[in-house]
């Protein structure tokens, strides 16, 4: 079972482009429909919890699915399955690329790529703003956290801690009012 679990996640990790969110449909197909290791409801619960816990989303999903199926050992095996293709591919690229880093053609290639990367990073800000329901009432939160990190050099960890604590206290206040 663990071998099959490992191979399934190896496939998911090795063949999905576009990061963790792109892996969810393939995970659902493999885990819920094909192998029927989990029910659709269990899968959706894991999806919700993985979004709410720290860590890399796809790995959280994998380890949680494995854990639910067969305990801690299966959790570790599933997580390894999903990361091994990444590590191997990236290592191969890193080793080759470090030999050619100072090659003028490679440098020319990346001179063209770098501004595009910054643009590709800027777009998710706006799509995430939509799904996080930013309104006039709460738009100060992303603005303040941007300025604190970017201009004041505050660690993003503080932003996470303060926002989490703020939300917790606000929730307690709302709860009391009810």
């Amino acid at each position: 079972m663990n071998k099959e679990l490992f191979l399934t996640f190896l496939k998911i990790g090795g063949f999905t482009l576009g990061g963790g969110a792109a892996m969810v449909p393939m995970m659902e197909k493999e885990i819920v429909l094909k192998h029927q290791w989990l029910s659709k409801e269990e899968f959706l619960d894991i999806y919700a919890v993985s979004q709410a816990t720290p860590g890399i989303f796809a790995v959280d999903m994998a380890s949680h699915i494995g854990y639910k199926i067969g305990g801690v050992k299966s959790g570790i095996i599933a997580a390894l399955g999903v990361v091994v293709p990444s590590i191997v591919i990236i290592l191969a690229i890193a080793i080759v690329f470090s030999q050619f880093k100072d090659n003028p053609w490679v440098e020319a290639f990346f001179k063209g790529v770098r501004p595009a990367v910054v643009a590709l990073l800027a777009v998710p800000i706006f799509s995430m703003a939509r799904s996080a329901r930013i309104t006039w009432a709460n738009c100060w939160i992303p603005i303040a956290s941007t300025l604190l990190i970017w201009l004041c050099g505050v660690s993003p960890a503080w932003i996470i801690l303060i926002a989490g604590l703020g939300g917790f206290l606000y929730g307690l206040y709302l709860n009391k009012k009810q």
Partner: peptide, 16 residues
């Protein structure tokens, strides 16, 4: 409520 505050704050991480 925690996630209602956390999600907008994470956008700041991306933006910075």
């Amino acid at each position: 409520s925690i996630f209602r505050v956390l999600r907008p704050a994470i956008i700041g991480l991306l933006a910075s």
